[in-house]
């Protein structure tokens, strides 16, 4: 597999789990990174398209650094990217972040509360921070 260029676009891939608020948080965090915090430097791909074997999407995850964002311990996003031969540079677990906010009401799988949006933003900021660190490390290596 070819090595990812540090200046290449990063892919942020959430699980978007349907049944839990964590799934929506993963999705909104990933979209916040791609659309607002790192526009042009990050994007996402459809996990369902990847898992159904779309060749172009598989090639994309194999040639770009990927950040997966999973809502539950089944880690569907991370596992599926790895199964597709993708390079998971960072695997984010939403539930780890939520543990830091015990007692908070994050909303539902349909709508995030104010605390839910704050959690999504916190995860998005962590992704940006980790992406910057990763980029610096790779630049030093190259």
């Amino acid at each position: 597999m070819e090595r990812s260029d540090p200046k290449e676009q990063m892919l942020v891939i959430p699980c978007s789990g349907m049944g839990k608020v964590q799934g929506l948080i993963s999705r909104e965090a990933a979209l916040h990174v791609a659309d607002t915090l790192m526009p042009g430097a990050a994007d996402t791909v459809c996990l369902a398209l990847l898992v159904t074997g779309d060749a172009a999407t598989r090639a994309k995850v194999q040639t770009h650094p990927c950040v997966t964002v999973d809502g539950c311990p089944k880690l569907c996003a991370k596992k599926n990217v790895e199964l597709s031969g993708g390079n998971v540079a960072l695997g984010v677990r939403v539930y780890d972040t939520l543990k830091r906010h015990r007692g908070a009401a994050f909303g539902s799988p349909t709508t995030l509360s104010e605390e839910g949006w704050a959690a999504a933003d916190e995860i998005a900021a962590e992704i940006v921070c980790a992406a910057s660190q990763l980029s610096r490390e790779r630049e030093q290596e190259s």
Partner: peptide, 26 residues
């Protein structure tokens, strides 16, 4: 996603369920 959730929660809550597609496909 949002339309499916709306059916599950508001329009037909008694007669519908959903499955998580990535989990299903995994």
């Amino acid at each position: 996603r949002q339309a499916t959730r709306r059916v599950l929660e508001l329009l037909r809550p008694q007669s519908t369920v959903t499955l998580c597609l990535p989990l299903f496909l995994a």
